[in-house]
């Protein structure tokens, strides 16, 4: 499964980069996240309870950063094990590009799911990803004192391109994820990383 996304963040690239390294805020913002700890400069572990379709499980995830090139980007890879529910693993190249006072974050993620997650939940993964991303943005927004719907147009669009291998078909979904959820520049850094972790740890 391949997913790509692009986010326009109204913050300087350095601020976004910095925000992508604070586990505490991430933990509060990722839906179902019970713990998220930085074990080294390049490694994090997380425990996330998630429900995808009929499969509900606690995923123990391990995330590694490599090809680190501050503040331009890195490669993030990881896997989440959900016991009998199956597993998810994958990686993503993350790029931060300056655009005036704003930052454009893009990622290209490649991920696999296995076990019951694949057998029973594969059809739900895309919609679950969108739902959890929305939830994540709302949490971030609230964390910085904002409320949903306060501002518009910050996140112009996020395009999830998903190859639905099960039906050997490609669908392009325009996902207006998080439209209007805003807390401040730094939140978008967390949001971006949060989506990546969600993608890798849990969803796809």
């Amino acid at each position: 499964m391949d997913m790509t996304g692009e986010y326009r963040i109204p913050a300087r690239r350095e601020d976004v980069w910095e925000a992508m390294n604070d586990p505490e805020v991430l933990k509060k913002s990722i839906p179902g996240c019970q713990s998220l700890e930085k074990v080294s400069d390049t490694e994090m572990t997380a425990k996330v309870v998630s429900k995808i379709g009929p499969v509900k499980a606690t995923f123990n995830g391990h995330v590694t950063l490599s090809d680190i090139d501050p503040p331009k980007g890195y490669h993030i890879s990881g896997e989440g094990k959900g016991g009998v529910a199956g597993f998810a693993k994958g990686g993503a190249d993350v790029h931060l590009a300056e655009d005036g006072a704003e930052t454009v974050l893009t990622y290209e993620a490649k991920a696999q799911v296995g076990g019951k997650l694949a057998q029973l939940g594969s059809r739900m993964i895309d919609s679950t990803a969108k739902k959890m991303a929305d939830e994540f943005f709302a949490n971030i927004s609230e964390h910085f004192g904002g409320t949903p719907g306060e501002e518009e147009g910050v996140l112009e669009h996020a395009v999830h391109e998903m190859e639905d291998v099960a039906r050997d078909a490609e669908e392009k979904l325009e996902v207006a994820a998080g439209r209007g959820y805003l807390g401040g520049p730094i939140a978008w850094g967390f949001a971006a990383l949060g989506v990546l972790i969600l993608v890798i740890l849990i969803l796809s």
């Binding site: 499964m1 696999q112 799911v113 296995g114 076990g115 694949a118 057998q119 029973l120 594969s122 291998v165 099960a166 039906r167 050997d168």
Partner: peptide
């Protein structure tokens, strides 16, 4: 249908 790379059965229900 199987995922071509992982060999996961994607149509198991």
């Amino acid at each position: 249908s199987y995922d071509k790379e992982s060999g996961q059965l994607m149509t198991a229900s």
